[in-house]
Amino acid sequence: MPSVSDDAQLIEQTLAGRSAAFGELVCKYQDRLFNTIAHVAGNAEDARDIVQDAFVQAFLKLESFQHHAAFYTWLYRIAFNVAISHRRSRRPAVSIEQAKEDAGEEPADVGDGPEINLLRKECCEQVRGAIAGLKEEYRAVVVLREIDGCSYESIAEILDLPIGTVRSRLYRGRLQLMEELKEMFTAEETPGP
């Protein structure tokens, strides 16, 4: 978990005029935020723009940051708002294949042989596709929980939702994923010849 005290120091330094301190915050959170937003936005290109814009917005609004919340929670909230703005002006979520290509990374080859690696890639493809197919309101909650590991409280704060709604949407999102991925799970459970 990020160190809140480190973040507070960097924020303080930034507000004192050392903008390089904010650069350190960017370095610290850019990949984590990108990984989350890429699954929300559905493609890497949009995700990069959203992440950059979110950091810019955070920089511009840093004076208004209230330290009772974690910086990354506040940052994520900005990023999701930026993502909503982007989504309104851009195309809808891309296809499974396109999402895979845009994401630009595949599961690491862990030496299981080409067949296993291919199977793993296909599974990732399916999971990404299933996430992309979620209703938006479910996708944000699922991604924040499963991809980023946010607590329900953090998710509620980021998305400005009651915790009960977070819980409900997460459950429904998981059910939808379960339905989408049923075939994959069935195949995995089926013993080979």
Binding site: G23, Q30, Q52, E106, C124, V127, E146, I147
Partner: peptide, 20 residues
């Protein structure tokens, strides 16, 4: 577990300069 096992995606570049 299936979702959590997805490989992490990275930006691939340092955004700090562009952000500032």
């Amino acid at each position: 577990m299936a979702v959590q096992s997805l490989p992490e995606l990275r930006v691939g570049e340092d955004l700090s300069g562009a952000v500032l």
